[in-house]
Simulated assay, not measured.
Amino acid sequence: MEELLLRVVPGLAEQWKGVTPDAIARIEQIAGRPLPSFYRWFLSRMGLSMGHLAYPTLDFSAQRVLERYAEEWVEPHPGLLLIAHDSKEMMPTSLFYDLDAPARGDALVAAKEEGADETDLYERFETLREMLAWGALSRFRLDKMPQQCGGTFSGDPPDILSLVEPVMSSLGFKQPVSTGPYCGLYERADAVMTCKGMPRHGLDRVRSFEFGGGDAGVLRKILGEIAAVSSLKVKVTEWTPALA
């Protein structure tokens, strides 16, 4: 994870700043259970500053999390832990860990609108690790590609990405970090693809994708290979910029 972030996020090595073990321990006390190991790593590296990786309205800092609890803006919950406060004026949607849904040394990330009930959660990523890696690749590599497209992979298998991965590997793509069945990250020098599904929403037959490369021909060729080699249905819904 460090290799990926330091490689794709400009100046991150000079900008990221972590917090002290004491601050981490205070958040763990609020959680009432051991924090996921990845979150401890995140706080130790970026709990004070995320540098250019920071999100426009989401504050992941340990200080903001502790302030929100101290102000009783959010009350301690046995299964939910605030990890990012949303500062949007209209319909702010802060992020929480669902600590009852652990995964690979991490936990599910869910969004909740201000004032909503704890059961009214919108699940975003199976892990914080995948959310940060997905965001970094999207913002600092994929979005800078001359041609982009988006769409869906669909089919009968419950794990769609298990059919995508071997095709991408055969075409020279690497997976910069390991992911679960809901998130796929693939990159090579001239192209980047990110795939995403919604945990626990019963959408096991569909994964959305965003794909960027040098030109439409390259993207079409790769998507065509996935459709030809696997049993998946590939649907492109948008081209950016639009094709003539």
Rank of each mutant, 00 (worst) to 15 (best):
R207L: 15
P166R: 14
S61I: 08
W16V: 00
A110V: 08
D143C: 12
R26E: 15
I160A: 02
D106T: 07
D22P: 05
R33P: 06
L99C: 01
A54S: 10
K196F: 12
A216S: 13
F42I: 00
G213A: 10
E75H: 12
E14K: 12
W73C: 10
D156S: 10
M168N: 02
S61Y: 07
D190K: 11
T119Q: 09
P10A: 11
L43I: 04
W239N: 03
L53A: 11
S138M: 01
W239C: 08
F125T: 05
G214C: 09
W239K: 03
G224M: 11
V192W: 02
L99T: 08
E225I: 02
F125C: 08
G79W: 03
D117V: 05
C195V: 07
T127S: 04
A228E: 15
A136Y: 05
P166S: 13
S154R: 05
E14Y: 04
R40T: 08
S162V: 01
G184I: 02
G11S: 12
A13I: 06
G184A: 04
G180H: 14
A54W: 00
G79C: 08
L66F: 06
T237H: 08
L35M: 00
S230L: 06
P56Q: 14
F42K: 04
Q147N: 08
A25K: 06
G150M: 13
E75L: 11
I160G: 00
A227W: 03
A111F: 04
G150R: 15
D22L: 03
P76G: 09
F209W: 11
H85C: 08
A242P: 05
G180Q: 11
P166A: 13
D59I: 00
P146Y: 02
R200Y: 15
Y55K: 06
S208Q: 14
L137Q: 11
Q147E: 14
P166Q: 11
S154Q: 06
T237Y: 06
S61E: 07
W41C: 03
V206C: 12
D86W: 11
F38H: 03
P78A: 10
A242V: 09
A13W: 03
L137G: 04
A228V: 03
M90T: 13
L171V: 00
V19H: 07
G51H: 05
A13N: 09
R129S: 14
E75N: 12
M145S: 15
C195L: 10
Y69H: 10
F209Y: 14
P10Q: 09
S231C: 12
L4A: 05
A110G: 03
G150N: 10
I222N: 07
G135Q: 10
V167Y: 02
S37K: 05
P158Q: 13
F209K: 05
E89K: 14
G18K: 09
P21I: 09
R33S: 07
I222E: 14
R129F: 07
K112S: 03
M50N: 03
L99S: 07
A227N: 04
P157Y: 06
L48C: 05
S178F: 09
K233E: 15
